Computed example of a mutant assay.
Amino acid sequence: MLDAYVITILTLMAIWSIVALGLNVISGFAGQFNLGIGIYMGTGAYTTAMLTTAAGFSFWQAVPCAVAMSALMGLVTGLPALRVREDSLAVLSIGFVFVFESLLIYLPYFGGPLGISRVPRVSIGGEPVSNQTYMLITFAALLLTIGVTLYLRRSWMGLAWESVRENELAANVIGIYPARFKLYAFMIGGAIAGFGGVFYAHFIRYVTPYDFGFLPSVYVLVMVVFGGLGTVRGAVFGACFLTLLPELFRFVQDYRNLIFGMTLVILMLYEPRGLLGDGSFVWRNLRSLYLRCAAIFSNGRTHAAN
């Protein structure tokens, strides 16, 4: 049995990794600089919280509804975003975050500033699962999300997103409609982030508007950029590392934020592509080490066969 503290950290790593992969689809694959990922995570979290506490839905019934609502929110926020680009898109997404947070605070239907409490535990066969089992379910969800995003990156849609990210005009000339694929990115990325929000709600068992505001959205963006924007490995590594890093420096509580911030500043100055981004120093050396090991292993097998 794992310690409860370790289970909590590992579960949060998996949850934030799922949300980071959602942002990576929007900002990494499609190149749409979005600072509003908290909207989609919050939509998923609030949808499952409302369905399971007020409508009698189980976790398993609420998941597809929450993911669908998050995809719809991606469509709603993506349509206005088609009219702006780059810096203006970032400002627009920040505005969406504050509108979303205000709606959750001032509309009593969403629980107001106190949010929604008593979100039920996940049950299997009518029995609530343990925290360790829930951690395993969350990691299974993360593996599913990784598989989906890897497939998307290598599919025709991934190629279209890359074309739009690099040059919208050239993409349009060869028959790729940027507006359509931007909306696809917002919807799919929103659905993935909402999927992570579902697991967050049932793990914390209490959601408030402040959990999905501007600062959490920036936090997720930092994860993706830190690990390597546009790469699945980078999004997962960034989310896991930056979830764990504050805990590692808990022994210097007063200076934890200073160390955390300086780590990010140094990395961005000397490795702007992210720690595991394509072409980064660390990734080049890891690939080189892997190729050398593979060559040694291959030669060893050849000699053994002879």
Rank of each mutant, 00 (worst) to 15 (best):
Y255D: 15
F214M: 07
L221S: 05
F251E: 09
F203H: 01
G274V: 06
F237C: 11
F241M: 10
L229C: 11
C240I: 11
R205F: 04
F214R: 06
G230I: 01
V198W: 00
P246W: 07
N257W: 12
A239R: 02
H202Q: 09
V265N: 11
R256V: 04
T208W: 06
G213V: 14
V252Q: 07
M262S: 15
T231V: 08
E271P: 03
R273G: 05
Y206K: 11
F214Q: 08
F251H: 05
C240S: 09
G230N: 01
L245I: 13
P216R: 10
L215I: 15
L269E: 09
T263P: 14
L258S: 13
Y210H: 13
F212Q: 01
P246L: 01
Y210F: 09
V236R: 04
L229Y: 12
F241T: 07
F212M: 03
E271G: 10
L276Q: 03
L276W: 06
V225R: 04
C240T: 10
I266N: 08
G261W: 09
F237K: 00
L258G: 11
A239C: 13
M268R: 02
L248G: 08
L275A: 13
P216D: 15
G213D: 06
Y255R: 15
R205M: 12
Q253H: 13
C240G: 05
L275V: 14
D211W: 09
G277Y: 04
D278C: 13
G274R: 04
P216I: 05
L229G: 06
A235T: 05
A201I: 03
V220S: 05
V265Q: 13
V252N: 10
R273Y: 12
F226M: 13
L275W: 08
V207F: 06
P216E: 12
Q253S: 11
